[in-house]
Nucleic acid binder design. Structure first.
Length: 360
DNA sequence: AATTCGGGGCG
DNA sequence: CGCCCAGAATT
């Protein structure tokens, strides 16, 4: 197959220019110090939908805590969630642990090196499979992420909506031809590095681009308009009340979220969805937590924005007396023990305010 | 094919 | 505020 998509481009020139630029300009990143498939794997999972600068400290802490796959495979869930706390998309770390356990127990602690096998591991999709295969195993497999689709959309002046699943496959098909077979690692990372540093979403640095002379979008002045992406729907708003409830001994009530869905397995202060009168609030708390409490407004709100919804949390504070058995997903703990539990950022905002007010 | 999963940084 | 980020799983 020949140059179907861009008559101007010389594939061999593109490969050479990209890889030379990458070798000269690549950032020094912790996961670039080794090609150990486990190291690459952890970094790629963390980097899903997450910026490099955010990942760096998490990656370093994670590798200190779980230097070998066995260390992760047999860690407690509480421990892995705590390490992931604040990074988001918490199912990533559950899936990573399950997949690492699979590798330890069924692949003799050797990460598989075929797309077929590796894509069957939990949390490893087409992108991550390609990244591990090319970076750790030098296999000529594409790794199509947002950066790559932006770069290719511009180089080939493609009008396809990069939000559609089909578009990723089209990019993969191009890359099977375009990828450098002798150094697929530098090629794939170079494409992503170019997208991160030069071929940026807005105001791309075309004058600094190593493949500018082969870019169809640049030639046509379309680089600012591409890639095409459909706008997504607005997030819907949800009102919550959250409660700092302390016993007479000064301990507080916390609750573990369900093991599926949003923020699965993380801990939080007791929460009710909605806005309530004092009476209904007291009744709801009694039903849900088996406690007697009439907390009062703390005059503190947290607005926390997710991609698809918005939490508006109103904080209440008060004394609680147990009234029946503690629900299975709840615990009463001392303030010093809070650091053992993983809390979502929205809850950390509440807890920090309580700390500043001296309520903890 | 469309939704659900977090959180932060930037114009 | 809206957009995007080294995406994958679920429906």
């Amino acid at each position: 197959m020949t140059e179907t998509y861009n008559e101007n481009i010389s594939y061999s020139d593109f490969r050479r220019q990209l890889i030379e630029w990458y070798q000269a300009h690549k950032r020094e990143l912790p996961w670039r110090e080794s090609n150990d498939p486990y190291h690459i794997w952890v970094s790629e999972i963390m980097l899903q939908q997450t910026r490099v600068d955010t990942v760096i400290p998490y990656y370093e802490q994670f590798m200190r805590k779980f230097p070998e796959m066995e260390d992760l495979a047999y860690a407690e869930e509480e421990e892995i969630l705590k390490v992931w706390e604040g990074l988001g998309y918490y199912s990533r770390v559950r899936n990573l642990q399950a997949a690492v356990r699979e590798v330890v127990e069924h692949y003799g602690s050797v990460v598989p090196d075929t797309r077929k096998e590796i894509e069957q591991l939990k949390g490893v999709g087409p992108y991550t499979a390609g990244a591990i295969l090319s970076i750790a195993y030098a296999k000529a497999e594409p790794a199509v992420d947002g950066n790559v689709m932006r770069v290719l959309s511009r180089v080939f002046c493609m009008e396809d909506d990069i939000g559609k699943p089909q578009t990723r496959k089209k990019h993969e098909a191009i890359l099977y031809e375009l990828i450098d077979k002798s150094d697929p690692s530098s090629f794939n990372q170079g494409l992503m590095e170019l997208g991160a540093l030069v071929c940026t979403p807005t105001s791309p640095g075309c004058l600094l681009c190593p493949v500018r002379t082969q870019c169809l979008a640049y030639e046509r002045g379309q680089q600012e308009r591409l890639p095409i992406k459909m706008k997504k729907k607005k997030a819907k708003s949800i009102e919550l009340e959250s409660f700092l409830l302390k016993t007479e001994k000064g301990e507080l009530l916390i609750e573990k979220r369900p093991d599926k869905g949003l923020l699965a397995g993380l801990w939080q202060l007791p929460v009710l969805e909605g806005r309530f009168d004092p009476g209904e609030r007291q009744q709801k708390l009694a039903e849900k937590y088996h406690i007697e409490a009439e907390p009062s407004a703390a005059n503190f709100q947290v607005k926390h924005i997710f991609s698809h919804l918005i939490w508006e949390i109103e904080l209440y504070v008060g004394r609680a007396n147990r009234n029946g058995e503690l629900p299975a997903n709840c615990r009463i703990i001392k303030a010093e023990e809070l650091e053992q539990y993983a809390f979502p950022v929205s809850q950390q905002k509440l807890l920090n305010h309580c700390l500043e007010e001296g309520w903890l």
